[in-house]
């Protein structure tokens, strides 16, 4: 068969570890709850649940909590941004209705927005800070179970709910100290 055996390894891993992406939390933001009027562009925002090149289908989870549902869309060679339809990634899919089926036209990644006054740090810069023993606190914002499995060197665990409840008691006393927050990445 044409599927490479390594694919199953990847899939197994995906199933075993539900990734918690940085952008996933953003769906709760004000942009996601804007009512979409009939005339507005047809669009889904959410997390890609799967993509099949053979069936030319993408499924995306839209909505939060009890209202979350999986929607399936078709795509073809004219669909733009297919590279962003990666399982686990947050994406925005524009679509049309063709022959009663939803047809993806443009797929864009849903990017996490940084709060004002906060800047992004990339892997190599962070690595450099570690090498230089920089005075910093690295904080893992994922659920405690994910932190337990694999974390960055010396990172402490403060999942979002804990941060909301515990406030500064969970952070270093010195407010000048560098804080680096991370989670499961955009994918």
């Amino acid at each position: 068969m044409q599927i490479h055996p390594k694919k199953i390894i990847l899939l197994g891993i995906i199933a075993l570890f539900t990734f918690t992406g940085c952008a996933s939390d953003k769906a709760q933001g004000p942009t996601a709850v804007k009512p979409v009027t009939e005339k507005a562009e047809k669009v889904f925002k959410g997390k890609i649940a799967g993509k099949s090149n053979k069936a030319k289908s993408i499924s995306i989870v839209v909505g939060k909590g009890d209202k979350a549902k999986t929607v399936m869309l078709k795509f073809d060679d004219n669909t733009k941004g297919l590279e962003f339809a990666k399982k686990g990634s947050a994406a925005i899919i524009k679509y049309d209705i063709k022959d009663g089926e939803k047809f993806a036209t443009i797929i864009k990644p849903k990017l996490a927005k940084l709060p004002a006054g906060v800047t992004e740090i990339k892997t190599e810069e962070l690595r450099g800070l570690y090498e230089n023993n920089a005075d910093m606190t690295v904080i893992d914002a994922r659920p405690a179970s994910r932190y337990a499995q694999a974390r960055l060197p010396g990172a402490i665990s403060i999942p979002v709910p804990e941060m909301k409840m515990g406030k500064e008691t969970v952070l270093p006393a010195n407010k000048e100290q560098l804080l680096v927050f991370y989670c499961g990445g955009p994918t």
Partner: peptide
Amino acid sequence: MSTTNAGLAKKLGYKNIRVYLEGEPAWSE
């Protein structure tokens, strides 16, 4: 997630906050 926490820390008065958006998967990779 990390951005939510960074926003909360900012409100609490922390002055020097960065977010490693690529996160743990990029670090391992």
